[in-house]
Every structure is written in structure tokens, then in C-alpha cells.
């Protein structure tokens, strides 16, 4: 009980600290912007630890962060193998194939008006559908290994990417297009020098949405069958064995991988679209 009281006290202290930071003179500095969420996150984790220990919550309901950390450190080889199987082989290859296919398709859609009129509503429609549901079918077609996971990812990222890229390629204004015309630019010249750069913020928006979708697709597809390897496989079997610390360790990996993947794309975006108002803040 003492530990629980301590947790409440810690929460109040963390909140007080953040209130001071937020209303202090330095509230808009980078340090505070970094510190405040960190304090909040650490307070939550510390409270989690204290409450789990204080109330003796059984492992099968909620393991303490320290237990998860120990499990994480102990099973690094397994986690790494799962990471390679699911993220590198499944999600990343599917992401690359799906996004580049959607990009090429978007150029075709943009070039022929009829395709744009016909395919874009269909694409918008499909982008809102629960495409994860195709996982059992694709697992049946491409086998249990990572190929089927990559296929699910391809299907999942294709339409959001297509819709975003097509929207981006129409971003250049009539005035800018006319200017290219007066320069007697060919289609491809005006594509490469005007429309493609103008489309970049949209393309990166699609790429960023797709990073999360890729991970979701690869993990969920493993629930429908996988070799004895992979994050989705490990999560579902560990849940079955009630070793929740392993499940949480995999979730930590998924979270780190998701954030890193997204961060990487966001960094490339920053380098490519440095000219865009949203990047010049």
C-alpha cells in the first residue's frame, strides 16, 4: 500500500513539476518541449512499476516495466530474429514494392484523365476498407513465410500512397504550368522540374501514413499463419502461454521500430522538402 501511495505522490510531483515548467518563463524553449513529455512518460512508467509491485498484480495481467526490461535484455537474439523476419523482410520489402508500384500507377493516373476519373474514386473507396482482411487469402496464396506478409503490406500501402501521390501531382498551379509551357518544356521536363517537386509534401504524407500501415499489415498477417518466427507469431503464442513479459517486449520492439521507421521517413522529408512552409518554421 505504501508503494501505491508513493505512486500517487509521484504523480502529483510530476504534474507539479510540469506545471511549473509550462507556466515558467522558459515554457517555449526546446529544453522544456523535450523535458515535459519525458517527465510525463517517466512518471507513468514509475507509477506503473510501483502500482504493480504495491498491489501484487499477477504477471499474467500486467508485468512491471522492470520485468519487461529484464525479459527484453535476456531475449535479444529472439527479438532480433523476429524483427528481421517481420520488419525487414515482411514490412520493409512490401513497403518498397507497394509504394513504388503506387507511385508509378499515380503517374499513369495523372497522365490520363480517364484513369483519374475512374480509378481515384475506387482508390479512395479501397483506402478506407479493412484491407487487413485480405491477410488470410494472401497467406493461402503465398505461403507462411515472409512473402505473404510482404504481399499484405503491398495491398495495404498501395491505395493511400496512390491517392496521396495523385493529389500531389495536381498541386502545381495553372500559372506555374503555363510558365513551363512558355519555356516549351516537354511533358517529362515539366514533370521532373515542376510537378514532382511540388508533389513531394503529398508523397511524403503518403509514405508516412504507409509506414504504420506496413507494420500493422506485417504483424496482423502473422496471426493467420507464419513460420515459428516473427513478431506477430511471438505475440500470439506468448499470449497463449501467458508469458506477458515476452508480449510486452515484442510490443516495445514494435513501438521502437514504428517510431524509427516513421522518423527516418520524416527526416528524408525534411531534407527533400526543405522549401515547404511547414518545414521552415
Amino acid at each position: 500500500m505504501i508503494l501505491v501511495l508513493f505512486a500517487v505522490f509521484l504523480w502529483l510531483f510530476g504534474w507539479w513539476l510540469n506545471s511549473r515548467l509550462a507556466s515558467g518563463p522558459q515554457a517555449d524553449s526546446r529544453a522544456v518541449r523535450f523535458l515535459a513529455p519525458m517527465i510525463f512518460g517517466l512518471t507513468i512508467i514509475a507509477m506503473w512499476e510501483l502500482v504493480v509491485r504495491g498491489l501484487d498484480v499477477p504477471l499474467v495481467i500486467l508485468p512491471a516495466p522492470s520485468v519487461i526490461a529484464v525479459r527484453f535484455a535476456d531475449s535479444l537474439p529472439i527479438l532480433w530474429a523476429d524483427f528481421v523476419q517481420t520488419i525487414i523482410k515482411g514490412a520493409l520489402s512490401g513497403y518498397l514494392i507497394g509504394c513504388s508500384a503506387a507511385f508509378l500507377m499515380a503517374i499513369a493516373v495523372d497522365r490520363w484523365d480517364f484513369l483519374r476519373l475512374g480509378l481515384l474514386p475506387v482508390g479512395n473507396f479501397v483506402a478506407a476498407l479493412p484491407i487487413v482482411g485480405t491477410a488470410p487469402i494472401l497467406v493461402m496464396w503465398f505461403g507462411f513465410d515472409w512473402h505473404s506478409k510482404a504481399a499484405v503490406v503491398v495491398v495495404m500501402v498501395f491505395f493511400p500512397m496512390l491517392v496521396n501521390t495523385v493529389a500531389g501531382l495536381r498541386e502545381a498551379t495553372a500559372m506555374q504550368r503555363d510558365l513551363m509551357e512558355t519555356y516549351a518544356a516537354t511533358y517529362w521536363q515539366s514533370f521532373l522540374k515542376l510537378r514532382l517537386p511540388a508533389a513531394m509534401p503529398f508523397i511524403f504524407n503518403g509514405l508516412k501514413i504507409s509506414t504504420t500501415l506496413a507494420l500493422i499489415g506485417a504483424i496482423v498477417a502473422e496471426f493467420f499463419g507464419s513460420p515459428t518466427l516473427g513478431m506477430g507469431f511471438r505475440i500470439s503464442t506468448s499470449v497463449g502461454q501467458l508469458s506477458l513479459d515476452m508480449v510486452w517486449a515484442e510490443i516495445v520492439v514494435a513501438a521502437l521500430a514504428g517510431t524509427a521507421f516513421y522518423g527516418l521517413v520524416a527526416m528524408i522529408e525534411k531534407a527533400v522538402t526543405f522549401w515547404h512552409p511547414s518545414q521552415r518554421g
Binding site: L62, T212, I216, V220, V239, V247, G263
Partner: peptide, 19 residues
């Protein structure tokens, strides 16, 4: 939003089932 939250799904189901 960058995390595949859906990975939590099996655990939520089983944990709630156990209580």
C-alpha cells in the same frame, strides 16, 4: 500514431478474459 497499436490486441483480449 506511428506505433502498430494493433499488436496489443491479442493481449488485451486475453488479459481481460483472465479477469
Amino acid at each position: 500514431q506511428t506505433i502498430p497499436i494493433i499488436a496489443l490486441a491479442p493481449m488485451i483480449i486475453v488479459v481481460l478474459y483472465s479477469i
